[in-house]
Design a protein around this nucleic acid. Sequence first.
DNA 1: CACTTTACAGACAGGTCTGTCTGTTTATCT
DNA 2: AGATAAACAGACAGACCTGTCTGTAAAGTG
Lengths: 185, 185
Amino acid sequence: MKKPNAKERILETAGELFFQRGYSGVGINEIIEKAGTAKASFYQHFPSKESLCEAWLQEMHDRSTDTHARLLGSDLSPQEMAAAYFTHLADFLKAGDFRGCPYSNTGAVSDENCCGILKLIRLHKESTRKFFREIASLSIPDAARAEAIGDRLFVLYSGATAEAQNLKTLWPVEIARDAAVELLS
Amino acid sequence: MKKPNAKERILETAGELFFQRGYSGVGINEIIEKAGTAKASFYQHFPSKESLCEAWLQEMHDRSTDTHARLLGSDLSPQEMAAAYFTHLADFLKAGDFRGCPYSNTGAVSDENCCGILKLIRLHKESTRKFFREIASLSIPDAARAEAIGDRLFVLYSGATAEAQNLKTLWPVEIARDAAVELLS
DNA sequence: CACTTTACAGACAGGTCTGTCTGTTTATCT
DNA sequence: AGATAAACAGACAGACCTGTCTGTAAAGTG
């Protein structure tokens, strides 16, 4: 517990740095220095910086999948689920200096060459969209309408994250949460 | 008209490149090569790459201010104004290979050192927020409610732009436009 | 014509980046 | 103890970056 192996230390350190300063703003040298490993060790575990980024995105995606499942499996009402998820976002942003969505931020500096990264971003976004659609389907009988409302929740969530980052404030999240609760009532 | 001066050529070329590949993905050397100027000429007009970025953001902001004023001064209904603005966004994204919001994308790679850039981003975002609040105030008598609805439109607009970029598709814009029209009715 | 401004051409310095390489040290397992 | 795997340390190459510098050519103005 005190001393995980090199791969885990690299992944954890890189995650923090990528999140704080963006994928393109952090170099391998800084990562290995802060993780306390040698460069050779890094390239033994990850063939490239890009693959490290993919591992990071995948790890976060797995965690968020768990969160979605836990919320959907809870006994909260749909409105409460959505509200809890937006509150979770607010806590996340507050704790992380309003750095916004790691997926969107990474996508903003990835060209079409990084297709592995772009694929993971889309995977996560579609998964989040599906999560909101499922919430919506719990309180809206009409399936087509539920899908449309779920998509609206998704767009609200994304906009709240983006603008909280740009403006370094929490009101977009609160606005989006209120709108989401209204949409589900 | 065929041959603007060096400064304008640099600004125009840099604008296209920054938009297509992001601020951090484009170097001075490429800009001046594509603009057909010398490096010395560049540094005669712009003290740094960062100041070039600020000029670019400022230029776009001025244009969007015009668009806002024109829309607000038109004889369209509030719903039509919002719908037109989202349609404008759809056209913009389609024409630009779904590169998303230049301000948000630039902000994602700027740290707190680039305070001039960050200030312009916030300026533009607050200005867009105000634009949506004014639209909302045209169809919602209660001032406080109008402000809240305007903020929702703003968050929807931002989320639509972000997710259209991530997913390379137009449905977030259509979803947001429908939601906006509903909010204003 | 002389002068000044503007732009061109491109070398250069000093730094950062990814990724490769050589070699040493530590830990684990039989 | 001996063997094997993992991690260490760090130099190095090659590319790219911003910004500075020297010098030349063209264009407008008195």
